[in-house]
Design a protein around this nucleic acid. Structure first.
Lengths: 348, 348
DNA sequence: ACTTCATTTGACACCGGTGTCAACCGCTGT
DNA sequence: ACAGCGGTTGACACCGGTGTCAAATGAAGT
């Protein structure tokens, strides 16, 4: 940071670059945007001037001229603080060095004004693009809203959302199947399931994975072995109480996320059951909770940060290259993380 | 959303309002900024026009004209995802309806480029203000940076940071003292302590609170009863192993945050100690972990969301009222949350 | 040599606000 | 009647980029 320049603080503008390079500001604009049809000599002269002056385009001015903010929005309804933050990290990894900013916009999916809220936000901020996390990524209206506003978007989800769309998804169904297969291989025959909330694609996917594994092994799935939850701790506890109160009680439980798994743990401890001796338990997310509880929880790791990065890269890459938005899916593998909460069933 | 207007989509601009009200755009600008010295009649006419047209000022244009983005930045180095998110919520509560946007900027305090990073970010985005979370709020350079850039800022911390400054703080020292007093009242005489990382004001404050309580009760604090941690789970586990390996081992442990308390729990379970029968445990933060572990953790609740709201209100209020930045501290009480992890010591 | 045409570049308006400063208003004081 | 004055208001430039379109350039075609 040399302090000796003649105008000590003022940031150089496009005009400074233009006069230094002896061209018009429009030409400088062309250079910084990588516009075609410039002679090599001019381009180099301008680039030189940019370098010397340390010029950086002013995002506010661009935003005004383009009617578009150089920013990416993360729209979410707090599935889990850690998840959101991991996404933030991933997105920032992708947009680092790209002059884009990240804006985070939590919304309240239960509010009837949610869509208006998002709309007025997008209308105000006019970001380049939006990344939408589950569970609101499952609502088609938001995608439609973005489209109508000319905001690129990527929806993140647990399964392909719909085919004409831009999305980044993970293979959690498969990972759940794998986790349950492991339990079955250990000898478990009565496996309980704690479902996620109604209307969540992720919840449905995980349930499909569960059923697939049991059916493949020829195990029955009595309906009372499937308890309803809402992804929150408390719901996991009540689901656990319900499942563990059954007569031939399950020897293993798969909970659709870690918080609910922690709730099931509480229910087990309330009954003086030991984990994994009396009950094996598997969660989903690999949240901090999974390592904090005792015994630590076998769970499925969501490739969150990678998903965030990929989502942002789709958005940004296409934007910077002035390409049409590419419609390809990205599908990332979820991964089973084995910890201390599972063991063969007591009978075995 | 009536669709029948003549120019279906275009947002009304200040010019539309001006011509509708029969005044110049400058006058409209005065109205939306609450400038003094306007006749009541004019003001009302303009306000009427604004209402009819549903005019909202364009933040990008303002940003360009003012050289200032209508946004507040949250600068943090992820003390804890939940904490950050609670702050986000609090800030959003405060800036709702204020035309301001929230930008979140995580930084890496371990990176030598951190300050440059923040500087270039502020120079690029030129936000109205910044809210800085601990631990980086303790670094005076960041405040200086903001000052030199004309960015208002509020530092959030566990104790008064320095007096000429704008900060929002909580009384965690007092809350820790209170928590320890409770342990002492239960009959605990050997109380261990897991310290936060070196150089963190919050860590120092909590330790002061711990010592204050023990000294007031005339209890000795042998240095081996104070173990070093870094606010992370793993460090809590090793600190716990160390403390529980002492010969007359502590009958209670205060850990400077919940994650480390969870680590101490693991250490206790590894030795087949039961909580709270053999060991009482208190954490700090009231993070989700505190409720997820078994037994649930007695802890100190940080008024995080309120702090975020207050911090943002300081920033925004002063800005909107065009006041000079008010230098008053805000001090919020932390609160003890009693759960299942404490009991009288075994001897009693 | 003179069109013709593609390539490269620049002049200028524009995006939608805000700051500056001067003009205008109606009143007062002499 | 007129200078002086405070309260209102508007004309205009400006913030720092981008889009449009035409001008300048130079090579190719006849």
């Amino acid at each position: 940071m040399p302090l000796g320049s003649s105008h000590p603080q003022r940031k150089p503008t496009i005009n400074d670059v233009a006069s230094k390079a002896g061209v018009s500001k429009k030409t400088v604009s062309r250079v910084i945007n990588g516009a075609p049809g410039l002679s090599v000599a001019t381009r180099e002269r301008v680039e030189q001037a940019i370098l010397v002056l340390g010029y950086v385009p002013n995002p506010q001015a661009r935003a005004l001229a383009l009617g578009r903010n150089f920013a990416v929005v993360l729209l979410h309804d707090n599935p889990n603080a850690q998840t959101v933050q991991n996404f933030e990290r991933g997105i920032l990894d992708a947009i680092r060095e790209s002059e884009l900013a990240l804006m985070v916009r939590p919304v309240d999916r239960r509010s009837p004004a949610m869509l208006e809220d998002v709309e007025s936000f997008l209308r105000q901020q006019r970001p380049i693009g939006a990344i939408i996390l589950p569970p609101i990524s499952e609502r088609d209206e938001i995608g439609a809203l973005c489209r109508s506003m000319g905001v690129r978007f990527v929806r993140v989800g647990s399964a392909a959302l719909d085919d004409d769309d831009h999305s980044v998804t993970s293979t959690d169904r498969i990972a759940v199947t794998e986790a349950c297969r492991l339990l079955i291989a250990m000898g478990h025959k009565r496996i309980g399931f704690v479902r996620g909330p109604q209307g969540f694609r992720s919840a449905a996917e995980r349930e499909l994975g569960f059923h697939a594994a049991l059916e493949a092994a020829g195990l029955p799935v009595p309906s009372e072995y499937c308890a309803q939850g809402d992804y929150r701790f408390e719901s996991g506890r009540s689901a656990g109480r319900q499942l563990l109160g059954l007569d031939p009680r399950p020897t293993a439980v798969f909970a659709s996320n870690d918080e609910m798994a922690a709730g099931v743990m509480h229910a087990a401890f309330e009954r003086n059951l030991q984990i994994p001796r009396d009950l094996s338990l598997v969660g989903f997310d690999d949240s901090p909770t999974a390592t904090h509880v005792w015994p630590s929880l076998t769970t499925v790791r969501w490739p969150i940060r990678d998903m965030g990065m990929l989502a942002a890269e789709k958005l940004v890459g296409d934007f910077l290259l002035r390409r049409r938005f590419s419609n390809d899916f990205v599908h990332l593998p979820s991964e089973l993380v084995e910890r201390a909460s599972i063991a063969p069933p007591p009978e075995a």
